[in-house]
């Protein structure tokens, strides 16, 4: 659902989305250290594939978004990673339009960055268990935030906000649950196997 097609949104919404995404990507690339580029690229590939797995849900179908997990692992680098993933989905599979790319990137990447902040706030002083729970929380909230941002973009363009928002948010509740569990499992595994994984070094009282 993070794929709004062309011709739905109004021009001001499109421009605002493009501006936010452009700024986010610029900042993300500026903050991205060379050593973390391969990690960001690999995760962009994960995002690209994850959104191709569609599950039937009510009248339409939903797919994994992974905005929460992306945010937790990549931080601001989520912006360029998500831009690349969504661009390729639009070009190769026609998921979402090209003109609307800015808005689509914004609704996924902005929630990713917010989830990163939430994750750090909860997990900063916590032990292993609390960190894993924070990751689950971020994973679930990431989906909800993305759905809300998509609804907001639709609403600001004059679509029927109530029905659109309800439908988008309702169909994504199972996705939020799945991603919550998935994110918690991934972060739990990483913390146990590879606690020095870039992006996790700030939590659990290791640094700062």
């Amino acid at each position: 659902m993070a794929h709004i097609p062309d011709g739905v949104l109004s021009a001001p919404v499109l421009m605002a989305g493009a501006a936010v995404s452009l700024a986010g990507c610029a900042y993300g690339l500026w903050r991205l250290e060379a050593e973390r580029i391969p990690q960001a690229a690999l995760f962009a590939a994960v995002l690209f594939v994850a959104a191709l797995v569609h599950f039937p849900a009510g009248p339409s179908s939903v797919h994994l978004i992974l905005s929460g997990l992306t945010g937790v692992l990549l931080g601001w680098a989520a912006f360029p990673a998500i831009l690349v993933a969504l661009l390729l989905q639009a070009v190769l599979f026609g998921f979402g339009g090209l003109v609307v790319l800015g808005v689509n990137v914004m609704s996924v990447a902005l929630s990713a960055v917010l989830c990163r902040a939430l994750f750090l706030a909860v997990a900063r002083s916590g032990n292993h268990r609390q960190t894993v729970m924070a990751a689950g929380l971020a994973g679930g909230i990431g989906v909800v935030l993305t759905a809300l941002l998509v609804s907001l973009a639709l609403a600001l363009s004059g679509q029927a906000f109530a029905t659109a928002a309800k439908l988008v948010v309702l169909t994504h509740i199972p996705v939020a649950v799945i991603e919550s569990i998935f994110s918690a499992a991934v972060i739990g595994l990483l913390l146990r196997v590879k606690p020095e994984f870039p992006g996790l070094t700030l939590v659990g009282g290791k640094r700062e």
């Binding site: 580029i37 391969p38 960001a40 690229a41 690999l42 962009a44 590939a45 690209f48 594939v49 690349v84 993933a85 390729l88 989905q89 190769l92």
Partner: peptide, 9 residues
């Protein structure tokens, strides 16, 4: 698509 992303990275 995966190839493009890894190449870009």
């Amino acid at each position: 698509g995966i190839g493009y992303i890894l190449g870009l990275g």
